[in-house]
Design a protein around this nucleic acid. Sequence first.
DNA 1: ACCTGAACACCGTTCAAGT
DNA 2: ACCTGAACACCGTTCAAGT
Lengths: 200, 200
Amino acid sequence: MARRNDHSREEIQAMAIEAAIDILNNEGPGSLSTRKVAKAIGYTVGTLYLVFKNLDELILQVNATTLDELEDGIVAVSQDQLNPVSTLKAMALAYLHYAQDNFARWSLLFTWRLPEGEPVPEWFDAKVAGVFEKVREPLQQLRPDSDAQTCLQAAREIWSGVHGACDLGLNGKLSFGGEFKPDTLIESLVENYLIGFAKA
Amino acid sequence: MARRNDHSREEIQAMAIEAAIDILNNEGPGSLSTRKVAKAIGYTVGTLYLVFKNLDELILQVNATTLDELEDGIVAVSQDQLNPVSTLKAMALAYLHYAQDNFARWSLLFTWRLPEGEPVPEWFDAKVAGVFEKVREPLQQLRPDSDAQTCLQAAREIWSGVHGACDLGLNGKLSFGGEFKPDTLIESLVENYLIGFAKA
DNA sequence: ACCTGAACACCGTTCAAGT
DNA sequence: ACCTGAACACCGTTCAAGT
């Protein structure tokens, strides 16, 4: 057929990312493929390789939008909180709820691994750092005399806990031998950690 | 060829699991396949489906041995510790080191997902519960008056943190904008959490 | 210049046919 | 009874050939 200029390079990229997100939402992680994306946007697989280097690059773009939404979700709830502790709790629960509501994309963000040599591009790392920065702010309020580096480490510590609870919880590795709901678990985890952090 | 009775069903299963572990160690997660396992043990793919229902069942067996080793590693270091806090720290670091040294298998244990309907078999859940039980013991010592259920929840909370730090750390999602080594991060996380937990 | 379609080297899974 | 080998329906990726 060889249709010409129906869409620009950028338009095809945008269409592909949107199609990939649809497939993830409807069919779950693991059923995403270049061939399915190509079919969904009405082009051949070959065309996909004209606008993306490979599947990894497409997934990286999908993950970037996931990360953006994740940050937006966390920031949104942190506005109308009375103190740093409730802010951090609200952010943690927002993270959990995003992961629950967008399980396939949230999963892909953390399970996807680039091939051996390939490093994650700088702009992507910067995005991740941006999320941690949002977590740092309330921690800084909690301990105004600490330097930024200390609070950045604390942000990584507390978020490791929140992320880990989501990971284990949403993958069914927490709830047996009794009810252990991720949200109550996360609230208690954040509470206990912050007692220690505030005291030091 | 159709060789007969060279190996029993159980022997073929054991050989396959061992071969799968080798492939994971040498080629990383994601390059495990039924065809590679079959070739490694000198049988056809068809034979693999005679002794395992499918790839998921083989992986479940591999994950079971990983879980056993993980528990052994944690228990080993908890023997000669002076108090519950140092026990928990030692266990957390043992978990990290196992994950570092056996990255492919540790990854597989947490990234593998069974197809939609399939539930994880009970015996596997029991294994996971067994690991949490080991974490519960020192927590119980720390707060002898608390009931088992409270300590089991705490075990899940603290291990969410340890697991999350391993996950993010080993996948390069922690160390940018400064050095954040997983081991110092985990130690501090456990310390802070336990201050809160002991106080309550 | 843009896009296709067929090819290549892989997958998981099944099952008639061979010994 | 045990095992094979070919088949089916999928993958990611490449690239000569078409318009």
